[in-house]
Design a protein around this nucleic acid. Structure first.
Length: 455
RNA sequence: UCCAGAGUAGCUCAAUGGUAGAGCAGCCGGCUGUUAACCGGCGGGUUACAGGUUCGAGCCCUGUCUCUGGAGCCA
């Protein structure tokens, strides 16, 4: 069944070809006297193949049904196109209607709004823009693996279902097979305890880094937060490298190198699709990606970032002071206006960061780092982990965590503890940054957000 | 969850409290190596939902739902 050529390869031909078979969906048909033009797209690339169908060839009697959205098979010869707009066209010798699409087919030849296309998520990959988004998503998923595999990182599949709520941050989705009151007898549940969908593979990742030295995870992650923004989803993919014998500096180096590498890969491998994004969603895209690849990231300690914000003379809605979290408006000012560059902020006050981050010698700050990028804000959050057992226990006390709930995690500090570090990176936020698509729902095939699990 | 805005034809949008319209799409016809083709014609509406004010509501008021933008939480 899978035979014939994909349009991407047909269009890349260097010379005419005889007896080519292509299969795809009709984007539009233009009728002329005695023949018709079909724009045929199979999703293998942005461009469609122009097909010339003469009246009278086998199958041409069904031409009225070759409407936008219909699936068809075309056989013919690939010849140079005499008209402007395309190098090649397929002169059909036989056409076959596979599946018709009647007048109710919702995708028109004209542009649609992103909001409307979201309501037809099962059909929107047939549009130019979403075809491009999901081709790029695929290429970059591959690039993520290539980046880490080239650097001898080991891919670890951390569990999706977990009993640890990972620092108690964020709402978790409960996983249960119980009926009725699920909190009455959790020990009667499938796993004999309360379980959740993972919010991070970090803790398990640390265990494997403390054995295989360099590891990464790349998989689905879940947050039950009632977040209604263009940057949050209930189900998203996170990339979490973790390195043994690694400090904060090397961690930041890796994070910055990673983002540069992804931008470079996209520019090299997805040029056609990126050109579409630049034309229709983000005029600055090309400029920004080149900038990210070529220029070094700015790196500032949290205290310096606070000083920059205070000295800016800018009136912020939220207060700026040591010990307070950087708000979205502050992050945006730093990366978009002040430095005009991706910015890595590090060494945050310990009070505003999780228990597992390593306490610096000043006793005040921890080895946290956030990479902020223009337009998106935080795209990486990472840290060197606290490897000292006593200090980690004290941190947990400070955060009202019970050490007995983290027995195996503390073991990593009891047996052959090493300095180690890592970070978490939201794959979709990376995609937003690299495509210019402003809403996370539009870089996920079927997005899960509060109140929406359609499809 | 909070703040703001929006919801009218398949899509994108008009309509001073007074007869609901246009462009595109669709259908029919014409023309043309066309390129989001072009020209003419035709069909197309519970104005998100429920109530209220008014002689009269798409428009004003109340509630609900959905969507969008911003915020918080974060990746």
């Amino acid at each position: 069944m899978v035979n014939g050529l994909i349009i991407k390869h047909v269009l890349a031909s260097t010379e005419p070809r005889q007896a080519v078979t292509v299969k795809g969906w009709v984007r539009t048909r233009r009728d002329a006297k005695g023949f018709s033009f079909l724009e045929l797209n199979d999703g293998s690339c942005l461009a469609s193949l122009q097909v010339v169908v003469d009246a009278g060839i086998p199958g041409a009697e069904h031409l009225p049904q070759f409407t936008t959205g219909a699936s068809v098979v075309v056989e013919g010869n690939l010849v140079p196109s005499p008209a402007k707009g395309q190098k090649w066209e397929l002169r059909a010798s036989r056409v076959e209607l596979v599946g018709a699409a009647d007048a109710s087919y919702p995708l028109q030849k004209k542009g649609h709004t992103m909001e409307f296309l979201r309501t037809i998520a099962h059909l929107r990959p047939r549009s130019n823009l979403f075809g491009a988004v999901f081709r790029v998503r695929s290429r970059l998923a591959f690039a993520v693996h290539k980046f880490f595999q080239d650097r001898d990182f080991v891919y670890v599949h951390t569990p999706i279902i977990t009993a640890s709520d990972c620092e108690g941050a964020g709402e978790l989705f409960r996983v249960t097979s119980l009926k009725g009151n699920i909190d009455e007898k959790p020990e009667a549940d499938f796993f004999s305890k309360r379980t959740f969908l993972t919010v991070s593979g970090q803790l398990e990742g640390e265990a494997f880094a403390c054995a295989l030295s360099r590891i990464y995870t790349f998989g689905p992650t879940f947050r039950a937060e009632n977040s209604n923004t263009a940057r949050h989803a209930a189900e998203f993919w996170m990339i979490e490298p973790e390195m043994a014998f690694c400090d904060l500096q090397a961690d930041m180096d890796l994070g910055e190198e990673f983002i540069k590498a992804m931008a470079q890969y996209a520019r090299e491998q997805c040029a056609d699709d990126l050109a579409l994004f630049e034309k229709f969603v983000d005029k600055e895209l090309g400029h920004r990606l080149r900038f990210v690849v070529e220029r070094p990231f700015v790196r500032v300690p949290y205290t310096e970032a606070i000083a920059v914000l205070k000295k800016s003379g800018r009136k912020f809605e939220f207060p700026v002071d040591y010990g307070l979290n950087l708000q979205a408006e502050h992050e945006r000012f730093l990366t978009e206006e002040h430095f005009k560059s991706p910015v890595t902020v590090y060494n945050y006050p310990r009070e505003i960061k999780p228990f597992y981050m390593r306490l610096n010698d000043d006793g005040q700050t921890v080895t946290a780092m956030d990479v902020l990028v223009p337009g998106i804000g935080e795209v990486i959050g990472g840290a060197q982990r606290e490897e000292r057992l006593d200090q980690l226990a004290e941190n947990m006390k400070l955060h009202n965590l019970k050490p007995e709930d983290y027995g195996w995690y503390l073991d990593l500090r009891r047996y052959g503890a090493v300095p180690h570090a890592g970070f978490g990176l939201g794959f979709e936020r990376l995609l937003m940054f690299l495509t210019g698509v402003p809403n996370i729902r539009d870089v996920i095939p079927f997005a899960r957000t509060p109140g929406n699990a359609e499809f």
